[in-house]
Design a protein around this nucleic acid. Structure first.
Length: 939
RNA sequence: GCUGGGGUGGCGGAAUGGUAGACGCACAGGGCUUAAAACCCUGAGAGGGCCCAAAAAUCCUCAUGUGAGUUCGAGUCUCACCCCCAGCACCA
């Protein structure tokens, strides 16, 4: 074999050595070294280590090893997120014990994780399915319950009919179960919730100062989904009840021409007594509640039904307006009821069109910015449609300020806008037969008419017309309008693209695209508020209609009940009256019973346990009953990083002093798929504990890095069905773990969530690099280190260190490769240079580096040695290549002393013939000189 | 649709406003070899000019999605547009 070393022997030996030296064992009480807590998301013990695991753990391990060489006391723990569905599903399939399945997998994964050379501190291992762990999950749940942060309510929940369980909102993707893809159903059950909504504002605000990548923060913000608005009550005519709505646009209330309730709205049952179309309404509600979430959102065609015989009163206009029920209003957001303003909301507009409801414009859009000395004028913009060809009539203005516009023109004193539109069209195009389809409310347009050199403030009325036939006269153009434009018929798409004028575009959008105006503007038809700016008047309007300013969040409380077996039992028992009580601490861990039937029956598996019922009776008395649900596994993983500090603690979930010392976590490395769920839950949980004075800081993670994903060699996501799954073990066997680590580090930047195809030649090329390193070591000699080489090593050391800090392992490795290229060119390779090279390589290829370290006669382990400190005097260069540019283009370069003066540099530069050529005999009019870098001669 | 992140060779990717394409893959030519593999050396963004001819060096032009702008100098900053990816999405 042409490989220069035997990786299996070397790797085995190195791992044994590290184990004997307790290399990755962290003394968390150490007071001498600076603590650094490096956390990886812990794996689910699915049984086999795949490429994703390697990418997650082996690459982060590089950083752990680097930090140790920086003299840091590094805590780099690992554990298993061991509760969850796959174990239970496997158990159902094989009629086995989920516990056995899980622990067998954990055993297997421990060996596999060790094989990558990851320097985890196994003494801190945590397994969420261990009673010694979940005892504290239960304890923490009890704390939340005692402080009102865990509560029970009957709620409409997402139910997966296949897995026979309730799901969290987050586990529903496009209306389907995240795990099995089955469309979810709605079910009303009494469930446990954690009050994450109470922390919405702080989860949002505390995100701001965190130095995380914007995409991570933005995803969390979107998930929390804050909006500012107001609650406003709409009285129901002749009744006590009121419809309370949430709106972000109280300024549009004068345009609210109906009210809509969600089908689940609590008022409906009362109102059903008085409506005259009770049967139809009930039918509609039955039909919509039967629909799955998916069906509701898939079919965006608006449906709904009017409540006949009852009306609401618009508190602003005092008008009676109809009440509808429609499933486009969500019961779970705001108040489950909305005031509909069809003129200024897309959804209400669509609904109003379908049910033929009045559309009242109360916002006049404003385009352009007010200018000094404006001339006021009234005008029209006419959008003429030829329904036969689907084209729109436009004018192409040929003068220099022109462009494509619709027909526009001034309104004569007292003239009807529609009539003015017809007149303008005739004058400018000659078309005779037009039908007016509709007109729009006013908008305002500020602009500067260059051709006339005046600023204008135009009040525009949009008119929509249809061309009846092609009959046409000569246009009746005024003298100054002749030859200044041509008539143009454009398709709708062309017209949309070519008509740039903002105000014209508004009219087009409204008539042709059938979209309402949803922006701000000047209030109209709004009583005493008419004429004011919509944004500015908002607060006054809320006050005038007796509303209250309010915030709403998209985030819902966290549903944590699961009707599954393999999870942490909820530590709750019910007294004979059915009131919940927490299981007292002395009875924790509240063990998961083993005498259960976990075949999916639609009932919680724990309900089949005789032992659990007897346990409750025995401890609490006759008539007491257990809670049968288990906790969402996201609860288990919301606090595991605290347990790592003190995993065997039997008195507390973690140690106060250690938490104070080690939290917040310095850097949390994980996958982008956990940005919204796990990361948000963990932040919430931590904040709740902070408020109970159980943890020392308000945020758990100082830094968060999302890594990317490794794709198959074909550039597609790895999947068994595609047959593009790469098994890292094959590569480890052939090229060694070090080569695989190197390849994953080199594949792309680790500090961003990109996606990188696995190159089948990649690992081999890394092995080639390592083989070259080994061959280089055969050429070691005792020469003194030349200064130039010492500098090169120092520079590389600094570069590699910097890149490691930024998780840019790809460029760190590139620097090492360049260094190797340079070393290979040397006649004599000094041992001291090889020693330093080994140190720089150690975090990346830990096994081989250990071997080479021994060959060089190094003491102890290379991984216990400090990173080479660089002598800063080495960085001072005495000579530098100065690039010479003429007018910003490179024309050559000169070698100069670093401190050379501009005059010296210029003199040298002028000797270059290419520079002379480019100057063309002229003297440079200006010289820019950046010492040590560049000399730019401007002609 | 909204929000965020991107767009650089055949590919993965590099570049504090200062030599664009580091480093590597794939590729081509050469060496070693009976031969192949392995290994080593060399080349390479595209185009052009120079030349009897070929090769190399040197030289010139064009090149970081498109178009404009700021600057002595732009992959990097500003504006507009196009495209890709991710998150959210009937959230009032």
């Amino acid at each position: 074999m042409a490989q220069a070393y035997d990786h299996s022997t070397i790797e085995k030996k190195a791992q044994e050595k590290w184990a004997a030296l307790n290399l990755s064992l962290t003394d968390v009480g150490d007071e001498n070294k600076e603590p650094y807590y490096l956390l990886c998301e812990f794996p689910y013990p699915s049984g086999d280590l795949h490429t994703g695991h390697w990418y997650a753990f082996a690459v982060t391990d590089i950083y752990a090893r680097y930090l140790r060489m920086q003299g840091k006391n590094v805590l780099f723990p690992i554990g298993f997120d061991a509760f969850g569905l796959p174990a239970e599903n496997a158990a159902i399939r094989n009629n086995a014990d989920p516990k056995e399945w899980t622990y067998k997998n954990i055993e297997r994964m421990r060996t596999q994780l060790a094989s990558m050379g990851a320097s985890f501190d196994w003494s801190k291992e945590v397994t969420t399915a261990d009673p010694s762990y979940y005892r504290w999950t239960q304890w923490l749940f009890a704390k939340l319950f005692e402080h009102g942060l865990a509560y029970r309510k009957e709620a409409s929940v997402k139910w997966c009919p296949k897995d026979q369980t309730v799901l969290a909102n987050e586990q529903v993707i496009d209306g389907c179960c995240e795990r099995c893809g089955t469309p979810v159903e709605e079910k009303r059950l009494t469930q446990w919730f954690l009050k994450i909504t109470e922390y919405a504002e702080r989860l949002l605000a505390d995100l701001e100062p965190l130095p995380w990548r914007e995409e991570i923060k933005e995803a969390q913000r979107a998930w929390i989904g804050k909006s500012e608005g107001a609650y406003i009550e709409f009285p129901i005519s002749g009744r006590e009840e009121k419809v309370k709505v949430f709106t972000t646009r109280p300024d549009t209330i004068y345009g609210a021409t109906y009210v809509v309730l969600a089908p689940e709205h609590f008022l409906i049952s009362t109102l059903l007594g008085v409506v005259s179309n009770k049967k139809e309404v009930e039918k509609y509600i039955a039909a919509t509640t039967k629909k799955t979430e998916r069906e509701r959102s898939e079919n965006k065609e608006k449906t709904g039904i009017k409540l006949e015989g009852v009306t609401a009163i618009n508190p602003a206009t005092k008008e009676e307006i109809p009440i509808y029920i429609a499933d486009y209003v969500l019961a779970s957001y705001g108040t489950g009821a909305v005031m509909a303003v069809p003129a200024h909301d897309d959804r209400d507009f669509e609904f109003a069109k379908k049910f033929d409801l009045p559309i009242r414009e109360v916002i006049e859009p404003v385009t352009g910015k007010p200018l000094p000395d404006e001339q006021f004028r009234k005008s029209i913009v006419a959008v003429v449609e030829n329904k036969k060809t689907g084209q729109i009539l436009c004018l192409d203005w040929t003068d220099e300020y022109g462009g494509v516009l619709f027909i526009g023109g001034g309104l004569e004193e007292g003239e009807d806008p529609a009539a003015a539109a017809v007149r303008e069209i005739k004058e400018e195009t000659g078309y005779k037969n037009l039908r007016v389809l509709g007109t729009l409310g006013k908008s305002h347009h500020h602009y500067y008419a260059f051709s006339k050199k005046i600023a204008r403030n135009v009040e525009v009325i949009g008119v929509h017309l249809e061309l009846v036939d092609d009959e046409r006269n000569e246009p009746a153009l005024e003298e100054n309008e002749k030859n200044r434009f041509s008539v143009l018929w454009l398709t709708k798409d062309e017209a949309e693209r070519k008509v740039k004028d903002e105000n014209h575009a508004l009219v087009f959008r409204r008539f042709i695209r059938n979209k309402p105006y949803t922006g701000n503007g000047i209030l109209a038809n709004s009583g005493t508020f008419s004429g004011r700016e919509s944004e500015e008047a908002m607060a006054d309007i809320v006050q005038a209609v007796g509303g209250e300013q309010a915030l709403q969040y998209r985030l819902r409380d966290w549903l944590v009940s699961r009707q599954r077996y393999w999870g942490c039992p909820i530590p709750i028992v019910y007294d004979p009256e059915g009131k919940p009580h927490v299981v007292p601490a002395e009875h924790l861990p509240w063990l998961l019973p083993t005498d259960v039937n976990f075949k999916p029956t639609g009932k919680a598996p724990l309900a089949s346990s005789k032992e659990l019922r007897e346990r409750v009776t025995k401890i609490f008395g006759e008539g007491w009953t257990p809670e049968y649900d288990t906790l969402d596994t996201f609860v288990d993983s919301a606090w595991y990083f605290m347990r790592y500090l003190d995993p065997q603690d039997t008195h507390s979930f973690s140690d106060v002093a250690l938490m104070k010392k080690w939290l917040p976590i310095n850097r949390y490395s994980g996958g982008s798929e956990h940005t919204t769920m796990h990361l948000l839950y963990a932040r919430f949980f931590y904040k709740a504990l902070y408020d109970l004075a159980l943890v020392p800081t308000a945020e758990p993670f100082a830094e968060r890095f999302n890594r990317g994903i490794i794709l198959g060699p074909d550039g597609a996501k790895m999947s068994k069905s595609r047959g593009n799954v790469v098994n890292p073990d094959d590569f480890v066997a052939k090229y060694g773990a070090d080569a695989v680590r190197l390849y994953l580090a080199f594949i792309g930047p680790y500090n961003e969530a990109g996606s990188y195809p696995w190159n089948l030649e990649g690992v081999a090329s890394m092995r080639k690099f390592l083989d070259r390193v080994v061959r280089l070591f055969a050429r070691v000699d005792k020469e003194e280190m030349p200064r130039e080489l010492a500098r090169r090593l120092a520079q590389t050391g600094a570069k590699v260190g910097e890149d490691c800090k930024r998780f840019k392992f790809n460029t760190a490795l590139a620097a090492l490769m360049s260094l190797l290229n340079a070393l290979e060119k040397l006649q004599n390779v000094p041992a001291s240079a090889l020693r330093e090279f080994t140190l720089l390589l150690a975090p990346f290829a830990p096994h081989l580096s250990e071997h080479l370290w021994e060959r060089l006669g190094g003491e102890g382990s290379v991984h216990q040695t400090l990173w080479p400190s660089s002598d800063s005097s080495l960085f001072a260069k005495n000579e530098a290549e100065i690039v010479v540019q003429v007018a910003g283009r490179r024309r050559g370069s000169v070698q100069l002393r670093a401190e050379a003066s501009e005059a010296e540099a210029l003199a040298e530069a002028l000797k270059i013939s290419a520079v002379q050529n480019a100057l063309g005999g002229k003297e440079p009019s200006r010289v820019i000189y950046v010492p040590g870098r560049i000399l730019n001669l401007v002609v």
